[in-house]
Write a protein that binds this DNA or RNA. Structure first.
Lengths: 189, 189
DNA sequence: GTCTATATGTTGATAGAC
DNA sequence: GTCTATCAACATATAGAC
């Protein structure tokens, strides 16, 4: 007899979602498992059924973010011109600028925090920066730039530095200004 | 009769120094007062005689850092050409690049961490970025640049973004590359 | 799978002897 | 001023009933 497979609990998904949000807004260390349980509506003691440790939890959050970055790039690949793809990346930055002003870059700020830990998960966070950088460099290569690596580093530094400045100054105009600068720069080169 | 004033205890100074070092290397949240006591050689219970709360401690650390930034600028003011002053700023970045690779920027990474707290001290950290930015903009103004504000923002974003990238990639060449880029950029404009 | 109750450890901060 | 001893709160993680 056919039996409908029980739908995998969506509690795990909810926990990852809440954890990702709170780690961004409040930081990893400042977010307790109790906070995550409350935000997701899952009882405190139940969290450890899905995630053995807090490190496992952030590890899955980072894994999720990696997948979303990758599918993000897949979307851009549909554009034939690498310049348009890079401009598309700026468009996404524009979209989330208000969150960046409030809480910093969801990737960059987490990297800086975790790099101070002695946890293996820090390398996983740094990996997110690396795949972004790798993709950006690939775009410059496709544009036949010989110094593609340096250009890619400059691009990524500008973006992450802008996020940090906007967060520190609490001013989204910082992001507008730098997006405009990068757009005109990419056009010229 | 003359009496030599008792030399103010240097314990407070030692505590601030250790706290500053550890907040940079390990982060604010991950550094316990016990860690600071141990590093500075001051008994745990004695810390609270000098600093009522942990927030008071970081507040004085930030105050110290502000003074050092200001005396740093005073030194640069001796140079007649604003371009040389900005290049001097890059020289200081070069000097501390290995620490930045290991622990991130001592100002930027702390700002990002504290901005996620709900503590008044976050604004004090952001203030450090603001006085740096203000000084940089002043240099561009002296160079008669009409878009001095944008240029200053770009300069600061580049520096802080580079620090974040170097920390994430664990590679000091990132800093070398961006310093070279900023040096040639400042020459041309 | 789900949840309550709780063990265990660490934290920031205090009280009070010297 | 200095330091020991300790409190109270909170953290992560676990045990075990349902």
């Amino acid at each position: 007899m056919l039996r409908v497979m029980p739908k995998a609990s969506d509690k795990k998904e909810k926990l990852i979602e809440s954890a990702g949000k709170l780690f961004h807004q409040v930081g990893f260390n400042q977010t307790s498992i109790a906070d995550i349980a409350e935000d997701s509506g899952v009882p405190l003691g139940n969290v450890h059924y899905y995630f053995k440790t807090k490190a496992d939890l952030i590890s899955e959050v980072l894994d999720n973010r990696k997948k979303s970055i990758e599918s993000w790039f897949e979307e851009f690949e549909k554009l034939p011109n690498p310049k348009d793809r890079l401009v598309g990346m700026l468009g996404d930055m524009e979209k989330m600028k208000h969150k960046v002003v409030k809480y910093g870059c969801p990737v960059g700020s987490l990297c800086q925090e975790l790099d101070k830990e002695r946890m293996p998960v820090a390398k996983q966070a740094d990996g997110l920066i690396k795949i972004q950088l790798k993709w950006v460099i690939a775009q410059f290569r496709e544009l036949r730039k010989k110094d593609a690596e340096e250009l890619g580093l400059h691009w990524m530094s500008s973006i992450h530095g802008t996020a940090l400045m906007a967060n520190a100054l609490k001013d989204s105009k910082v992001i507008d200004s730098e997006i405009a600068r990068l757009k005109s720069w990419i056009k010229k080169i």
